[in-house]
Design a protein around this nucleic acid. Sequence first.
DNA 1: GTGCATCAAATGCACAAGCATTAATTGCTC
DNA 2: GAGCAATTAATGCTTGTGCATTTGATGCAC
Lengths: 138, 138
Amino acid sequence: MPDVSDESLAQSWHDLMGRYARLTCRLDRELEAAHGLSSSEFEVLQQLHGPAGPGKLRMTELGERAHLSQSALSRLVGRLERDGLVRRAACEADRRAVWIHITDAGRARYQEAQPTQRAILRTETWCAAVPPPEEPAG
Amino acid sequence: MPDVSDESLAQSWHDLMGRYARLTCRLDRELEAAHGLSSSEFEVLQQLHGPAGPGKLRMTELGERAHLSQSALSRLVGRLERDGLVRRAACEADRRAVWIHITDAGRARYQEAQPTQRAILRTETWCAAVPPPEEPAG
DNA sequence: GTGCATCAAATGCACAAGCATTAATTGCTC
DNA sequence: GAGCAATTAATGCTTGTGCATTTGATGCAC
């Protein structure tokens, strides 16, 4: 007989799957339609754009920050590079590694897409912390 | 300049992505290795096994409950059927629809896999509600 | 009855992801 | 220095997914 807390945990997980599926689906669809980016690509650009400061990161670090597997990231960066949004550059310190630089076009695309992503996060109910989506003032 | 609450929302979403990625990855790997099921297949069997009572559900209903798209579900059910875990049956009331029945083998597989899944949900930190994973008594 | 919009499910096609492997580089030991 | 395990990233192969389309059934208007 299953533990009660196990069952409520399973329920929480099921709910999380639902929220995640709905949100990712909307993000993928709308970011793709409006800016030609998948949600993963957006996340990668976000990591490069923001906290990194110099706008460059090595593959491994980038993979951890964007929660992507090594092979998924390798191909994703390939696509971003093909589209001119990032650039691969040799790493002098460790020649096995590669620096991924965000390009001007990449920054522009990210800045253009950011409001779209933020708006979806605001208007889709996916997290208890999200305030009621529509609160017509007054 | 971005709204502060937007940024914290983006941070929450990023965290959710991380938790989701880690957990799904572990579930997929361990359920696959131990029971030959992906996490989505497990979820589908769970929906058929549990709340449905009679152990049958129509595709559309099943897709909503398991958070799967129509085409993903169609093929997933195809795989489960090939493996003898579910059975498709004509729906007399609406001949466009299809009943998906869980088979005895399907129930057995689910019951065998459930403890594996529950254990992962318990031991992986993915949600504030999860108690500290390892609490060596005393 | 005919005609037509709607809906359920399956499928062709293109693309993304995971696993396993490979190639190149590094750091460590001797 | 030579030898070797560990690490970084890319890639071949197979599998799963989404989008768009197709097939077949339903319900409604006429």
